[in-house]
C-alpha cells in the first residue's frame, strides 16, 4: 500500500507540473535581455539564474531585493549585472573577499546549500539595481541585509505562504500577502505589512526609527504588544482592544504602550518602534 501511495503522490506531482505548464508562468518583471536605458548602465544586462539543489529554506544576505512567491518549484534570481568584464586589469583574476566566498553563479553571487538552508550572498560590491527573486510560494525565506549604509534601498516580499524573516539596517521593508509567521527588524526605515489571507503568528515587526504600518484582515484577533516611544498608535475602528495593560504611571515617560487582546485575542502580534508611529489598518 505504501508503494501505491508513493506512486500516487508521484503522479500527483506530475499533475501539478502539468497544470503549471497549462497556465503560462508570469513573465518575470524585467525582460531577460533588456538593455538598460540609462547612460551609464548601458553595459549592464538582466541575467537570470536558477538555483540548483534548493534547500528547504532560502537565506539571502543582501539588501535591495524584491522577492515574489509563485506556483513553481525553482528559485529564479534575475539581476542587472555587467555584461562582460570591462576591467582589463582584473582579466584572468577572480573576486576575492574576506568571507572566502567565490562567485559561483556568474552574476557576482555565491550560492551554497548547507544543512537544508540555501544561502545566497553577494561577492564583492553590491549590485546597484534591485535583484528580483522568484521563489516557490511555500518556501520559507529569510533576508539578512548586509547593513549597507550607502545603497540600502529596501526589501520587498510578496505572496509567500511560509515563514518570512527580514532584518535590515536601512531602507523600507514591504511585505504583502504573506501568511506568517513573520518577523521584521529594520533600524532606519518603515515596516509596511499587508496581510490578505488568514494570519499565522507569531508576527513581530520592529523598527527603530520609522513607522510600523500594518493591515490585517477585518476580523483578525490577536494578542498584541505594541509600543512606540515617540509617536502615536493609530487603529481602524474594526479593531477593538480589551483590557489593555495600564500605562506606566511616571508622567515623564513618553512611551505609548498597548498590550492586550485585540478583537478577542488570537495570534501573537508584536509591533514596535522607538521613534515613529504605529498604524493598524483593516485590509478590505
Amino acid at each position: 500500500m505504501g508503494a501505491a501511495l508513493i506512486f500516487a503522490s508521484a503522479v500527483q506531482a506530475q499533475i501539478t507540473e502539468n497544470a503549471e505548464g497549462v497556465v503560462p508562468p508570469k513573465a518575470p518583471k524585467p525582460p531577460r535581455a533588456m538593455r538598460g536605458a540609462g547612460g551609464n548602465s548601458e553595459n549592464r544586462v538582466w541575467k537570470e539564474i536558477k538555483i540548483p539543489n534548493l534547500g528547504e529554506k532560502l537565506l539571502l544576505k543582501f539588501d535591495n531585493v524584491s522577492i515574489e512567491g509563485y506556483n513553481g518549484k525553482e528559485v529564479v534570481i534575475s539581476a542587472k549585472v555587467e555584461e562582460k568584464e570591462e576591467n582589463d586589469r582584473a582579466k584572468g583574476l577572480r573576486v576575492v573577499n574576506g568571507s572566502g566566498l567565490s562567485d559561483n553563479s556568474g552574476m557576482g553571487m555565491n550560492i551554497q546549500t548547507t544543512s537544508g538552508v540555501t544561502e545566497v550572498s553577494v561577492v564583492g560590491m553590491p549590485l546597484e539595481d534591485v535583484v528580483n527573486v522568484r521563489v516557490p510560494y511555500n518556501l520559507p525565506v529569510s533576508v539578512k541585509g548586509r547593513g549597507g549604509f550607502f545603497n540600502g534601498s529596501g526589501i520587498e516580499v510578496k505572496d509567500i505562504r511560509a515563514e518570512v524573516e527580514i532584518s535590515s539596517t536601512m531602507g523600507d521593508v514591504k511585505v504583502t500577502n504573506v501568511t506568517g509567521p513573520l518577523s521584521v527588524k529594520v533600524a532606519q526605515g518603515d515596516v509596511i505589512a499587508k496581510f490578505v489571507q488568514p494570519v499565522k503568528g507569531p508576527i513581530s515587526l520592529i523598527a527603530a526609527m520609522g513607522a510600523v504600518d500594518v493591515a490585517f484582515p477585518v476580523k483578525f484577533g490577536a494578542n498584541v504588544d505594541m509600543k512606540t516611544s515617540m509617536g502615536n498608535i493609530y487603529a481602524a475602528d474594526e479593531f477593538q482592544f480589551e483590557n489593555p495593560v495600564e500605562e506606566p504611571k511616571n508622567s515623564y515617560i513618553m512611551s505609548n504602550t498597548v498590550k492586550g487582546k485585540m478583537n478577542g485575542g488570537g495570534q501573537d502580534v508584536i509591533l514596535k518602534t522607538s521613534m515613529g508611529d504605529i498604524y493598524i489598518r483593516s485590509q478590505k
Binding site: 537544508g116 520559507p140 529569510s142 509567521p181 518577523s183 503568528g201 513581530s204 501573537d268
Partner: peptide, 16 residues
C-alpha cells in the same frame, strides 16, 4: 536554530 518563529513563540508562551 532554524526557525526564529519557533523560538519567538516559545518566548511569548513563557511570557504568558
Amino acid at each position: 536554530s532554524v526557525w526564529a518563529s519557533t523560538r519567538l513563540a516559545a518566548v511569548l508562551a513563557l511570557q504568558k
